[in-house]
């Protein structure tokens, strides 16, 4: 596969070939990220394929994916590196008295005693990687500040070893569910990509790509229903992954049409809250009609 893509179309086709259908701006920003070596901040509602984009990029560029899942309380020792002090102690005790202090000191602060955490792994890797920093909005602002050095210079300063600079430029993706406003300093260092739910046509293509055996007609109806459901005021609107799951479920059941009964039986695949289930059953189920539906014909519902 291509080392670095040379055009936007190449990226789009590449991503498609590994099973990810990018929108216009997604392909463009991904392309810019590989060309400019800038991190990309991907924001959007849950379940629009933010994490999937990173995975697809890794597959397409044939790079290893290094993932840092963020959570509240994540600190440097878990994200950057840590000294393996147990091993260091063992080293000292094994050497005992006859080694000079200088030699021991040189030894125990070598890379051998370094426990690499995701960011360090991504930086130090001899092969270029794709680094995914997932749900950055879950961390504290302090952690964001720490990321700045990594993101702008691609280097990490270790007091005992000096700065470790990246041998290769990783493609960095940061995802955020927008649960809190990120700092300006972080945003300034990133390209920005807003991912939204895809249009009916796009999502239909995605569903068809993942379940090619499902009939076109059912797939279209499925996507239209999912869009209807998203229009409702739900706690958790169905994600793209859930539409695919639903398509797979329907395929297993051998459905050739989606009517009210089938919808009620299978809607737990796309709706995951009890109160949401009630709303959806009431608002969407009825519209599908009991029999072989004549036409859903509502895109603008």
């Amino acid at each position: 596969m291509a080392a670095t893509p040379t055009s936007v179309d190449q990226v789009r086709e590449g991503l498609q070939s590994v099973g990810y259908l990018p929108g216009e701006s997604t392909a463009l920003v991904a392309y810019l990220a590989t060309r400019l070596g800038k991190p990309v901040l991907v924001e959007g509602p849950a379940g629009v394929g933010k994490t999937e984009l990173a995975k697809a990029l890794a597959r397409y560029l044939d790079r290893r994916l290094v993932r840092l899942q963020c959570y509240e309380g994540l600190d440097e020792a878990k994200a950057l590196y840590e000294w393996n002090y147990r091993k260091q102690l063992l080293r000292i005790q094994a050497e005992a008295a006859d080694t000079g202090w200088d030699r021991v000191q040189d030894d125990i602060f070598g890379e051998e005693f370094l426990l690499e955490r995701p960011l360090m792994t991504a930086i130090a890797s001899p092969e270029p990687v794709v680094l995914l920093i997932d749900e950055i909005d879950k961390t504290d602002q302090e952690f964001e500040a720490m990321l700045l050095e990594v993101l702008s210079d691609f280097q990490i300063s270790i007091p005992e070893l000096g700065p470790v600079a990246a041998k290769t430029t990783p493609v960095v993706l940061l995802t955020s569910n927008n649960s809190r406003e990120l700092t300006e300093a972080l945003k300034r260092r990133c390209l920005y990509l807003w991912l939204d739910y895809p249009s009916v046509e796009q999502e239909l293509e995605i569903v068809r790509l993942h379940t090619p055996d499902l009939s076109e007609q059912v797939a279209r109806k499925l996507v239209e229903v999912v869009h209807m459901v998203r229009e409702l005021d739900l706690k958790k609107p169905p994600s793209i992954a859930e539409s695919i799951d639903w398509a797979r479920a329907l395929l297993l059941l051998g459905a050739d049409d989606i009517d009210e009964r089938l919808f009620r039986e299978t809607m737990s695949v796309i709706v995951k809250h009890r109160t949401d289930l009630d709303i959806v059953a009431e608002r969407v189920g009825v519209r599908l009609g009991p029999g072989p539906a004549s036409g859903v014909g509502t895109q603008a519902a």
Partner: peptide, 16 residues
């Protein structure tokens, strides 16, 4: 034009 606009948007506009 679309590509140019997207490229500018990705670098200049950092929130919805």
């Amino acid at each position: 034009p679309d590509v140019v606009r997207e490229a500018l948007a990705a670098t200049l506009a950092k929130s919805p």
